[in-house]
Design a protein around this nucleic acid. Structure first.
Lengths: 212, 212
DNA sequence: CCCGTTCTATCACGCCTGTGATACAAAGGA
DNA sequence: TCCTTTGTATCACAGGCGTGATAGAACGGG
């Protein structure tokens, strides 16, 4: 016989509601009452599962990071090693993986939006400092790994500083996400993906067919 | 005989105080009272120069954009046309110009921080929508101009899509700014500038001495 | 059934916010 | 000097916020 309420799914329900509020109204206007309303819960119930606003916010940000990284992990495992593939496919696989960080569909757009709001808040809110830092380190680790894999597969032009290239690609991804979220009328998902592909293509050795 | 108070310098004083509060506490915590305190003014005086919070915020964001663009214009005129210069200097000049958008010193860091907070707020606050949009268009216009100038000076590898390259460089700048402001312990100004130089170098035709 | 645990719901409190209203001081041309 | 304009300073109000306290409902093992 199932318990009538499972605290974990309850918390997940609350966090989902919180994400919707953040996407719609921004983290600034994401109050306990707004989240409770969005989740169709009484604020008293909400506070039964989260002792304080601080706890709720931390839990929500942690959840968001978990979801993103788990999605990335799935993608990484699915790809496996790309040593044996033809170069165009290597680039495509790398782009697909990194594109998980870009707001190319509604799901990713929502995630990236929440991600950006929390990280922006982390600048002045100590509650998010550590999570924001480890997120930044995490993306860099991922990007560096992609670059070194490409390099190992001879899909990278020689003589490149891996540190610089990591920062460069990370900044490119962050900047694309920022623009695509803040100015979708200027930067649409299609162009977003094209820019990423262009960058990866630029990093790889020139092939006669690469220019068109 | 001077008037005892000049409304313009008064407003400027208030806006400077507002910027300091935004940098220190974030736009979220930038209330009328906080700004008044920071400016060592009574909230009543402040409200004598700004009819409402809405007006103050708009005026502040507009001021910030004006300062940035005027600084950029100075830089543009100072450079003039770069057709006659040797290529390394062309790249250096372009990098110096674009570096005005990066938080490489305290002044630029403060400006970029304020810029980012206002633009992030613009996503959910209609009061900033138009200003944010025109700022985004403005940077793209600038970046595109720099790229076309470099192209005209044969400092760009042929066969590039100028639209894609504009978005790419814009995203790179935005991403570098974001990381440098949010995670100065990870991305320092030096590396920031190096990444920009690396990107521009990557866009230009390879010269024998460019690899080291 | 009974009773402790879990959950839901509501009240009240203090704090901070923007803003309207108002009183008062200071300046400066008539 | 008087009077209008300009600037300074407070008060009060309504609204939103997080949160402590508390009461009562719903559940589930004994």
């Amino acid at each position: 016989m199932p318990k009538h309420v499972d605290p974990d799914v309850r918390r997940r329900l609350v966090v989902d509601a919180l994400f919707r509020v953040v996407v719609r109204d921004g983290l600034q206007r994401t109050s306990l009452r707004a989240v409770a309303d969005e989740a169709a819960l009484n604020i008293g119930s909400l506070r039964h599962y989260f002792a304080s606003q601080h706890d709720l916010m931390r839990f929500a940000m942690q959840s968001m990071l978990d979801r993103v990284s788990s999605r990335l992990l799935e993608h990484v495992e699915q790809v496996g090693d790309l040593g044996r593939r033809p170069r165009p496919e290597q680039l495509r696989l790398a782009a697909d993986l990194l594109a998980e960080l870009l707001p190319l569909d509604e799901r990713r757009r929502a995630e990236v939006t929440v991600f950006m709001d929390f990280n922006a808040a982390a600048r002045t809110n100590p509650a998010f400092n550590d999570l924001s830092h480890q997120a930044a380190e995490g993306t860099r680790t991922l990007v560096r790994r992609v670059l070194t894999r490409l390099d190992a597969a001879d899909a990278l032009r020689p003589g490149r500083d891996i540190d610089i290239e990591t920062e460069r690609l990370t900044a490119l991804l962050d900047g694309l996400s920022l623009s695509a979220v803040l100015h979708p009328e200027i930067l649409n998902p299609r162009t977003c993906a094209d820019v990423l592909l262009a960058h990866l293509g630029d990093l790889s050795p020139q092939t006669p067919g690469s220019a068109h």
